[in-house]
Design a protein around this nucleic acid. Sequence first.
DNA 1: GCGCATATTAAATAAATGTTTGATGTAGGT
DNA 2: ACCTACATCAAACATTTATTTAATATGCGC
Lengths: 217, 217
Amino acid sequence: MTVSGAPPLPSLGTDPTGADATRERLLVATHELFYSRRSTVASVAEICGRAEANVAMVKYCFGSKDALLDALIERITASFQDELERLDGLGLGPEETLRRHVAGIVGNYVRYPYVNRLLNERLMAADADAAARLSEVFARPTREWHRRLLARGVEQGAFRDGVDPTFFFFSIMGLCEFMFLATPWLQHAFGEALDDTLVERFVQHTADLVLTGLAPA
Amino acid sequence: MTVSGAPPLPSLGTDPTGADATRERLLVATHELFYSRRSTVASVAEICGRAEANVAMVKYCFGSKDALLDALIERITASFQDELERLDGLGLGPEETLRRHVAGIVGNYVRYPYVNRLLNERLMAADADAAARLSEVFARPTREWHRRLLARGVEQGAFRDGVDPTFFFFSIMGLCEFMFLATPWLQHAFGEALDDTLVERFVQHTADLVLTGLAPA
DNA sequence: GCGCATATTAAATAAATGTTTGATGTAGGT
DNA sequence: ACCTACATCAAACATTTATTTAATATGCGC
């Protein structure tokens, strides 16, 4: 936790020096603004103001604002893939793996509620090459992981057969995402606050729904 | 279907005349732009260009751009509530009601993929009074409807007990929403197109997941 | 202390944003 | 024909946007 209240970015191994330090401050500032606003709207001026850097440093460090956003995406999604690999390494059964995966995704939305929107926007604006690269860093490997998990579950008699991996990918993401996109609804319409207890209860609810929903007939 | 390819707005009973006709053209133009872009980004100039109206007509007809957006929200969400009431009137059992409800929500996302985002943005920007009014047109009555459906299902032994209505509301919305927010992923990462067959299969998948997920132990 | 690549700056740029102005057009009633 | 309320218009408004320029500062090897 920084003073901004936003969770930290996935750590960079080394301590950056020179322009790399400014580069890092710009990434962190963007993250903090996106996090606190629950949106992807922040001007270069705002980002640089928070990073205590001159606006021209965006071009100097990244080339453009869009390239800064892409760097932020790749930084975060890389940590998602690390997490999936770590989970695989635990050697758990399909149900427990899925339950922890749901908890992991919810945790990611707590930390980075804006990433999917950002990915979406960049994907729509991108040319064919950039779109392919963005797909490769997150959507494709994640669905592939889901496909393997579903197959393993069916094999062991834990999950029912015939569940489409693509639809399942969208279901899992959608279930977890909406909760955090819609925090204004939670507050204004339902008078609830997004605290740790609520997050934990939501994880339980979602994991129950998915695991029961996948149970064999 | 209009020439734009976008589904029509929920129909206004009467044929508008005078400035009301311009008002309607502005609403339709905004809808068509939002629909085709799958986003809520459209300048006043773009909206008025498509509506063949002068930019000053936004102030004249609505007072401001934000008021135009609120009018669009209220127009669409009103049709959602009509749909829920119609479904209640059919006197179906809890499972079939829920199955048709899922199909109905997916249908709404096909027609108005941008409404929830729009509601979200307006809710975040709104003052307390406006936020309360926006909550009242959609989130609150919809969750209340979900609560009654869950209670009826438990009563009749169709659903398991203890499912939180607020979480369930977010689950249902999230499941259906993500599919349409993420159409760029569907295309770029998975090479699939969002046609009628896919929508139908998605409805089936989602209804199965939710209905199985709610089944008693 | 000099020289040079790296890093940072203030200021200007052009384009786009939502809003506002005041003039102009257009019906319909009397 | 004349008035009036309604509807529309082109043009200017003040901000804000991302980007770019050219000048300057900084630190490090020698």
